[in-house]
C-alpha cells in the first residue's frame, strides 16, 4: 500500500516535472528595441494576453514579450517613428497557446494604440495620446497627463486613476467604468449597461458627461468641488446628498426623485457635469472625511 502510494507520488512528480518543463520549453521570451524620435507612436495588437506600458528615459522603445507557445509569433514593423507589434496567431492557436504577454517601456511622450481581446491593457505615467480597445480586456490607466484618452471595451472593466488635464472618452457596452481623480477639459463616459463611478472634484471649467442606459452612476466629490451638476434618469432614481443652489432656468422639467440641477461651490470656476441614465440610479454624494 505504502509502496503503491510512493509510486503514484513519484509518477505524479515526474508527470508534473515533465509537464512543467514542457510548458517552459514551449514558452519563449523575445526582446525588441527600437530607437525612436520624440513623439513616437506604438501600436500593439494582441488577441490573447496582456500589454503593460511603462515610461523609460531616452528615446527607445523596449519590448519584452513572453510567448506561451510556438503557435504564436510576434511580428514587428518600424517605420516613420512608428512601432507596430502584432501577435500573429498560427494554425491551431487558442486562448492558451496564442497568449503573449508584453511589457513595454516607452518614452513618456509616445502615443499608444493597444488592442486586446481578453488580456489586461495597462499604461502608466504617459503623456502621449492613448487609445485602448478590447472586448473583454480589463483596462487600467494611471498617472496620465495632458493626453487624449480613448477607451473602448465590450464588457471589460475600465479603471482610470489620476488622469489630469485629459480629453477622456470611454465607451463601454457592459463593463463597469471607474474614474478616480480624473479631470480635464472633456471627460465623457458612455455605457450601455455598465455602472459608472466617479471619484474626484470635476476640476475647473471642464465638461463632464457620464451616461449609462441601465447602469448606475455614482459621483463622489469632496467639499471643495465647484460644479454645475444636472442629473436625470428616465426610470431610475436620482439622489443628491449635497445641497445645491438650484438653477433658475433649466432645459428640462426637474422632477423630485428623478432629476436635479444645481450648482455647488464657486460658480465662476465650476465645471459642467451631466449625469444621464434611462434605467439606472444616479447618486451624487459627498466624500466622507475618512
Amino acid at each position: 500500500m505504502g509502496g503503491r502510494l510512493i509510486d503514484v507520488g513519484v509518477c505524479s512528480a515526474v508527470l508534473a516535472v515533465t509537464m512543467t518543463s514542457g510548458i517552459a520549453a514551449a514558452e519563449t521570451h523575445k526582446e525588441l528595441r527600437f530607437n525612436v524620435a520624440p513623439k513616437a507612436a506604438l501600436s500593439v495588437n494582441n488577441p490573447y494576453g496582456s500589454v503593460s506600458i511603462k515610461p523609460t528615459t531616452g528615446n527607445v522603445v523596449v519590448v519584452n514579450a513572453v510567448l506561451s507557445s510556438d503557435k504564436v509569433e510576434v511580428d514587428n514593423n518600424f517605420a516613420g517613428n512608428r512601432v507596430d507589434l502584432q501577435s500573429h496567431l498560427l494554425a491551431g492557436a487558442d486562448a492558451q497557446s496564442g497568449r503573449v504577454d508584453y511589457e513595454i517601456l516607452v518614452p513618456p511622450d509616445t502615443s499608444l494604440a493597444l488592442h486586446s481581446s481578453s488580456g489586461t491593457l495597462r499604461a502608466e505615467r504617459i503623456h502621449g495620446d492613448v487609445t485602448l480597445e478590447g472586448a473583454a480586456a480589463m483596462v487600467e490607466l494611471r498617472d496620465i497627463s495632458g493626453a487624449h484618452v480613448h477607451v473602448k471595451t465590450l464588457n471589460g472593466p475600465v479603471t482610470l486613476t489620476n488622469v489630469q488635464s485629459g480629453y477622456v472618452e470611454v465607451d463601454s457596452l457592459s463593463g463597469n467604468v471607474t474614474l478616480n481623480g480624473v479631470n480635464g477639459p472633456v471627460v465623457q463616459v458612455i455605457s450601455t449597461s455598465g455602472g459608472i463611478n466617479y471619484l474626484g472634484d470635476f476640476g475647473d471649467h471642464g465638461e463632464y458627461r457620464l451616461t449609462s442606459h441601465s447602469g448606475n452612476i455614482e459621483a463622489i466629490v469632496p467639499d471643495s468641488t465647484s460644479a454645475d451638476v444636472s442629473a436625470r434618469s428616465v426610470r431610475g432614481e436620482v439622489h443628491d446628498d449635497i445641497p445645491l443652489q438650484p438653477k433658475q432656468h433649466t432645459s428640462f422639467v426637474v422632477k423630485e426623485g428623478s432629476a436635479f440641477w444645481g450648482t455647488m461651490g464657486r460658480a465662476a470656476v465650476s465645471s459642467t457635469v451631466v449625469l444621464r441614465s434611462f434605467n439606472g440610479k444616479i447618486h451624487l454624494r459627498k466624500r466622507s472625511a475618512k
Binding site: 495588437n45 488577441p47 486562448a95 488592442h115 486586446s116 473602448k152 465607451d171 457596452l173 450601455t192 442606459h213
Partner: peptide, 20 residues
C-alpha cells in the same frame, strides 16, 4: 446618438481586430 454610437462600437469590435 450615444445609443447608435454604442451599437457602432459593437459592430466595429466584431469587424475589427479585437476579435482573435
Amino acid at each position: 446618438m450615444d445609443a447608435y454610437q454604442e451599437k457602432a462600437m459593437l459592430f466595429e469590435m466584431a469587424l475589427d481586430r479585437s476579435l482573435p
